[in-house]
Design a protein around this nucleic acid. Sequence first.
RNA 1: GUGGAUAUAGCGCAGGUGGUUAGCGCGUCAGGUUGUGGCCCUGAAGGCCCUCGGUUCAAGUCCGAGUAUCCACCCCA
Length: 436
Amino acid sequence: MSEKTTPRILQGFSELLPQDQFMFDSLMEKIKNTYKKYGFYSIDTPTLELSEVLLAKAGGETEKQIYRFNHYDNDLSMRFDLTVPLARYVAQHNQDLVFPFKRYQISKVYRGERPQKGRFREFYQCDADVIGADTLDINYDAEMVCLISDVMKELDLGDYCVRINNRKILSGFFDSIGLKDKITDVLRIIDKLDKMGKEKVVEELSEKGADKDQIEKILGFISISGTNHDKIASLRKIEAGELFSTGVDELETVINMAKMLGMSEKNVSIDLSIARGLDYYTGTVYETTLIGHENFGSVCSGGRYDNLASYYTDKILPGVGISIGLTRLFSLLKENDMLNGIEKNETSVVVLPMDTGRFEYAAKVVKVIRENGIKCDIFWSDKSGKAKFKYASRTGAGFAVAVGETEETNNTVTIKNLETGDQKEVELEKVSEFFR
RNA sequence: GUGGAUAUAGCGCAGGUGGUUAGCGCGUCAGGUUGUGGCCCUGAAGGCCCUCGGUUCAAGUCCGAGUAUCCACCCCA
C-alpha cells in the first residue's frame, strides 16, 4: 500500500460542509440583494495585483501581512482588502464611470496574519462604497447607516445598534487639548474603554504622556451620554475649533437624515469612543454591534474617506463605504448556535427508483417535477431501499418520491413526507399540485 | 513578533503513580425490515497513539527537540 498524502488545507483557511455552505451563501445573498436595493452595482477586481499598485499606500504592519511573491519577472501581491483595488479601479476607469459611483464587491481577501478565533487568512468581505467626483454630499453618509440597518434586518440576527462617530470631532477635540501628535495612540486607548475599564485607560493615557488635565478632559468627553440629540447638544457646548464644529455639524446631519430615511432611534447611536482602525477615515465612522452579543465586536464597519485614490490620480475622489467580514460573522454565528433561522437545504424532492427496471419511468417523473420548477434530485444507485431513503433523508430533502413497479403500472408516484413520515400514492399528473 | 494550550479511528474525545489484546460517543457499512430514512437492537470495518531522539526489562503514558493546530496578546486598510 502506497503512502497517501494527508488531505489538509492551509492554516487560517477554511471551507464549509454543504449544509453550512448553503447557509453561508444564503447570508451572502441577503447582503447582496440589500446592496442592490440601494442602487449599488457589482464589480469584480482581480485577486492578484501588481505589488507596486497594491502597496502604493501600504507600510509597516500591513505590508508584513500581505501575501507577496514573484512569478517570473512580476512582483505580485494578493489583495488584502477591497478598498485599495477599488481605488485603483476608480482611478483607472474614471472616464467610464458615472459619479457618484456606487459599487459593491463581495470577494475573498488575504492576510498572512496569525489566525485566531473568527480571524482567517482568507476571508470574505462584503463591501459597499459610494465614490464622488471632487465632492460627495454628507447625506450619502446617512444613507450608508440605513444600508447597514437594512442588511442587519435582512440577516435577522436580532437587535443591533449602528454606532456612529465622526473622526473630525475626535481629531478636533484632541488637537484642542494639545494631543495632536498622539491622536492615534489616544484613539486606540479610549477604544478599549469597554474592555479594560476606566482605570486602565487613565494609566495608559498617562504612559503615553497625557497630563492630568488632558486625561480629565478626555474622560469627560467620552462619558458624554444621553439621547443622540443630548449628545449633539453637549458637543455643541465644547469649544474646540473649526474642525471639531464641522464634525458635529456632519454628525447631526447624518443622524437627522438617517431618521428621515426611516432609521429608528433605537438602532442608531452616537458613540464617541468608536475609534478603532480608522487610519484612513476622515469623517463619519460606523461600527455595528449585535445587542446581547457585544463580544462579537463590530459586524459591519465603515466610514468616510476624503481622498480614496490619491496614490493613483490627481483627481479628488471622496467616498464613504461599509464592509462586512462575512467569514468571521458566519464563524461567530455558528459557534454561538445562531444559524437556526436560516433555511438549510435546497433540494426539496428526491426521486427514488425502487429497482433498476424503473429508471425510465423515474426519469419521466423527475422531468415532470423539474418542469414545474421544483428542486428535484434522483438517486440512480442500485442500493437497498433502506439506503435510498436514508440518502433522501440525509440530503435534507423534504420529500422522497418512491417509484416502483406498482407506481408505474398505476401511473402514480408514492410521496413520503420525510419530516412527518406520512406517505401516499399520487397520480403523476397531480404531482406538482402536491408540492405547491 | 510575544505568551499559553493541545496533538490517540473519518469527526469529537477517554486513556491515575509506565506493564502485555488502546477504549467510548458520533459517523460509515451490514443485518433485524429482499420498497421506507430520521428512533431502537445486533454485528463489522476502521489506529506507524504527530515526527525524531532519550530514559527504561518495558513508553500512548516520563524527558528533550522538531513540526502542526488552537487560544490569547500585538496589530488590524
